[in-house]
């Protein structure tokens, strides 16, 4: 992410356009203006729209988190940091955080590695290229909720596909929900099923931008395909890898629908909350029972903080392990 070199120095770019017979001064001014301000213009739409539709909800959430605010009864009393204090002592919150991190690690690490390898395989000349490329993003085509029902069938304890397959080779059925780690594994599988191809496609897009002559010269030097992958491909798409790591961190920490469907639509997430994630607990607090919106808002803010921290950690980890270009 340290690539900085931007535009050429203003004076050179301001050289009047050859085919335009405009007076020198006005063009110079336009050029300066263009260089100086157009970047802001280009990022402005994002900030304007975000300012309108994103910022208010954000600030409102902070505000609400300072209240004892129940949607159901309409109680609304200022509570200061009380919600946060209670939250930090709430065992169910920490349990949900534990589950969230566990599922995140179990799903993201294999997911990104496999996606990278898949993209590398896809970045070749082959027959049925389009079909194969599209084939791996197909999981994104249907809604999570619908496919979640299928996965509930695959991982059902008694009549499920996986336990049935295990049974045919003489392995005892797995308690897919009562066993915390089995449930994490199954949910991670659902997540990976859906997002591996998606990330592979993102990597593929970046790999296509790598100049082929780099490989050609490396090849002339006798570098193996594997070496080329690690020494050319991976470093060159590093910005994209960092991007997917951050995106996966954000998505992974907000995981909701998959574990919800896995638990037959109950936000409890297993009899003993084996796979209740933070997003599920936020939902449980905010929309069920007393609808403790203030508490849920405070929890969202802690989740927000956690995402930032983990995104930074992952960012640093990946940046260190994946060497970029020599800059």
């Amino acid at each position: 992410m340290s690539s900085t070199v931007g535009a050429a120095p203003p004076r050179r770019a301001a050289t009047p356009a050859r085919h335009r017979p405009q007076p020198r001064r006005s063009s110079y001014r336009l050029g300066r203006w263009d260089l100086k301000y157009s970047p802001y213009l280009y990022v402005a739409p994002f900030f304007v729209l975000f300012g309108i539709f994103g910022l208010f909800p954000l600030l409102y959430t902070v505000y609400v988190s300072l209240f004892d605010y129940e949607l159901l009864s309409g109680t609304r009393e200022f509570a200061g940091l009380e919600n946060y204090r209670v939250l930090l002592a709430d065992a169910q919150f920490w349990n949900a955080a534990y589950n969230t991190v566990g599922i995140f690690v179990l799903s993201t690490v294999p997911q990104l590695i496999v996606a990278l390898l898949l993209a590398n395989l896809l970045n070749r000349q082959m027959r049925g290229r389009t079909l194969l490329r599209m084939g791996i993003v197909v999981p994104n085509i249907t809604s999570v909720a619908a496919v979640g029902i299928i996965f509930a069938l695959i991982f059902a304890d008694r009549y499920g596909l996986v336990n049935w397959l295990l049974g045919t080779v003489g392995i005892d059925p797995v308690a897919w929900r009562d066993n915390r780690y089995a449930s994490w594994l199954a949910i991670a599988f659902m997540v990976d099923w859906r997002w591996t191809g998606y990330n592979a496609l993102i990597y593929l897009g970046a790999m296509q931008a790598i100049p082929r002559d780099l490989y050609e010269s490396a090849s002339l030097d006798g570098a193996s395909a594997w070496r080329q992958f690690w020494q050319i491909t991976v470093p060159l798409i590093r910005p994209t890898i960092l991007f997917t790591v951050i995106i996966s961190t954000i998505g992974g920490f907000q995981i909701f629908t998959e574990p919800l469907m896995y638990g037959h639509g109950m936000v409890r997430g297993g009899a003993e909350h084996e796979f209740q994630t933070l997003a599920m607990y936020i939902y449980e607090q905010t929309f069920t029972g007393n609808a403790e919106y203030g508490y849920g808002a405070a929890m969202s803010w802690l989740l927000f903080l956690m995402i930032i921290i983990f995104a930074l950690i992952n960012f640093a980890l990946v940046r260190r392990s994946v060497k970029g270009e020599q800059k």
Binding site: A152, L153, A156, R158, Y159, G160, H264
Partner: peptide, 15 residues
């Protein structure tokens, strides 16, 4: 021992 509303419970009727 079929948990109500679970996939197993649904399937239990047919089985």
């Amino acid at each position: 021992k079929a948990q109500r509303w679970s996939a197993d419970w649904d399937a239990a009727f047919k089985n």
